[in-house]
Computed example of a mutant assay.
Amino acid sequence: MTKTALVYIGAAMAEIAGCYGFWLWLREGKSAWIVPGALLSLIAFAWLLTLVEANAAGRAYAAYGGVYIAASLFWLWQIEGIRPDRWDVIGAGICLVGAGIILFAPRSTPIV
């Protein structure tokens, strides 16, 4: 597995965990003591994305979107106990293909 893939997976887990902390606090009525951990997780997410091997931040973030979608479905299954259906899996697969195209395609003159 490449460094970029590992960074994206780590960033996705950190972002989802951080957002889930806020979800638990604001939607599920859990203690506000969850928030500091959620914030630290979101800080880790932002830092991890700076480690992506890409020539532009926007391109790194765009490609990350596909990984985030797939990781969110993994979270849905493993943490929330809801198994993704075939449409979830197909959609995530399409997003991952798109992320790969964005990140690894050969570059030429940009379209304006």
Rank of each mutant, 00 (worst) to 15 (best):
G66H: 07
I79L: 09
V35A: 12
A56V: 04
A14Y: 05
G58T: 13
A56E: 13
G91D: 06
D85M: 03
W25Y: 14
A60F: 07
F104Q: 10
S31F: 05
L49V: 00
G10L: 01
I82R: 15
W77C: 07
G100W: 00
Y20Q: 14
G81T: 11
C95F: 05
G98T: 05
L76D: 01
I9F: 07
G66S: 05
G10I: 00
A44D: 01
A5W: 08
G93D: 05
D88N: 12
L48R: 00
E15W: 04
A60H: 05
F22M: 13
I82H: 13
G100M: 04
L40G: 15
E53K: 02
A38V: 09
W77K: 06
A11S: 07
G98A: 01
R27F: 07
W75F: 06
I43A: 10
I34L: 11
I102K: 11
A62D: 15
V67M: 15
A60K: 04
G18R: 10
V52E: 03
V112Y: 07
A17D: 08
E28I: 05
A54F: 02
V67T: 12
A5F: 12
E80I: 12
R83I: 07
K30M: 12
A46S: 06
R27L: 14
L48F: 00
L76Y: 01
G65M: 10
F45W: 04
A63V: 09
A46M: 04
A62E: 14
I90M: 09
G10A: 03
A62P: 09
G98R: 03
W33Q: 15
P36A: 11
W75A: 02
F104C: 10
Y61D: 06
W33Y: 15
R27T: 12
I94F: 04
A70C: 11
G58S: 11
L6I: 08
A60M: 03
A46H: 02
G66I: 03
L51P: 07
S41M: 14
S41D: 14
A54S: 13
I94V: 12
D88K: 03
S72L: 02
E15P: 10
S41A: 15
P106S: 00
K3A: 12
V67A: 15
E53A: 01
G29P: 13
G21I: 05
G93R: 04
N55R: 06
L39Y: 06
T109F: 00
I102C: 08
L6M: 06
G58E: 11
L49Y: 00
V89D: 05
P36F: 09
P106G: 03
N55M: 01
A57Y: 14
P84G: 04
E28P: 13
I16R: 06
W47L: 14
P110L: 04
G91T: 09
F104S: 08
L26R: 15
A5M: 10
A12C: 14
A56D: 15
G66V: 05
V97N: 06
